[in-house]
Design a protein around this nucleic acid. Structure first.
Length: 340
DNA sequence: TAATCGTGGGG
DNA sequence: TCCCCAAGATT
């Protein structure tokens, strides 16, 4: 059974002071207030994304767009290209919408309350609480996957995810106070990332293991319990690599909604679980260039790649530039089509 | 509420 | 090789 919340807080914050991570978006100990723009940008980039994957993007974005107003002035196509490879592209569209809302409706200054932040595009319950706590020192209940896992173990919650979410959030709320409101969620998240890991938790290094009901049971790694997930279907399609006389590649801008929305892509057939209708955009002749495999969150894909020379009403881009602007699935297909 | 929405690393 | 999963938001 956990000790009092205040005792748990004391031990975990002491651990955080000694073992907390140094991260590019995190203010150095004793430094002046964290820049809300950097906190918000990092939080959006880190949604469902690992620190090593997001870090170079954070560095590139802050170098190119040092303030939220700079970002608001960016071209849509530049922003989307800079996000290429990071995934969940709705985040990039919402990032730009949010920057423009802050610039236009808030004089370039982020709202400093949880409710104000929550009203911004792409800012949900987690991100609003995180920015309110970390950038503005608000006593917000910041609950991400790490916090859910720590709470599920600390209290040996028997309800499986995702049904356990409300209960886990209630449990987390008991630890939120006006003392060090920004450090507390970061301490919880650092613990979850480095000690209370999804697999093979490092309980001997945990500052609150004496409070942990799952540790007392002997197998904390089995928490949080999870309900079984649906299996992933497999789809197939065709991607067409068209090059003009200058060696440029034909790209299309994908519609804002749906998969890879707003990104440039190769022209493709429909992607379905049955063989695609071969309806190429040019008469050809087409050369078979093999196929690539790619796995999305809710389906896997085999994409046959065919190449031809031609002209037409496309976005024409040099291959080197295209490879940087395309989402990964199309970078793979283009690389194959180029014979690299 | 449940489905949709990427990618890369690790066990 | 395959499956898990990571600082979630939106509809």
């Amino acid at each position: 059974m956990p000790d009092t919340p205040s005792a748990v807080r004391r031990r975990l914050l002491a651990w955080y002071d000694a073992h907390g991570r140094t991260l590019p978006w995190r203010a150095a100990p004793g430094a002046a207030r964290t820049d809300p723009y950097r906190v918000w940008l990092s939080e959006v980039m880190l949604q469902q994304t690992t620190v090593p994957h997001a870090t170079p993007y954070f560095q590139a974005f802050t170098a190119r767009w040092p303030t939220v107003v700079d970002l608001a002035d960016a071209q849509d196509s530049d922003l989307m290209a800079a996000w290429a490879g990071l995934g969940y592209y709705a985040r990039a569209r919402n990032l730009l919408a949010c920057a423009r809302a802050v610039a236009r409706d808030h004089d370039g200054v982020f709202p400093d309350t949880e409710a104000g932040l929550l009203a911004l595009p792409g800012v949900g319950a987690y991100t609003a609480a995180a920015v309110a706590a970390i950038a503005f020192g608000r006593a917000a209940n910041v609950v991400d996957g790490n916090v859910e896992r720590v709470m599920a173990r600390l209290h040996a919650v028997q309800t499986p995810l995702p049904a356990a979410r409300p209960e886990l959030k209630r449990l987390a709320a008991a630890y939120v106070t006006d003392d060090r409101p920004g450090d507390w969620p970061q301490a919880l998240m650092d613990l979850g990332a480095t000690v209370c890991r999804p697999k093979s938790p490092l309980c001997p290094s945990c500052p609150i293991r004496i409070d942990c009901a799952a540790y007392a049971e002997g197998d904390p790694g089995r928490y949080p319990l999870k309900s079984s997930k649906a299996q992933r279907p497999h789809r197939q399609g065709i991607a067409w690599v068209i090059r003009n006389a200058s060696g440029q590649v034909a790209l299309v801008r994908r519609p804002d909604k749906g998969l890879l929305g707003g990104m440039v892509g190769l022209p493709t057939s429909d992607w379905s679980e049955t063989a695609p209708t071969d309806n190429p955009p040019l008469s050809g002749p087409w050369t078979e260039a093999g196929a690539i495999e790619h796995v999305f969150t809710h389906f896997s894909l085999t994409l046959a790649v065919r190449t031809a020379e031609g002209e037409g009403d496309y976005i024409w881009m040099a291959p080197k530039e295209a490879l940087k602007a395309l989402p990964t699935v199309f970078s793979k297909a283009l690389t194959r089509g180029l014979g690299a």
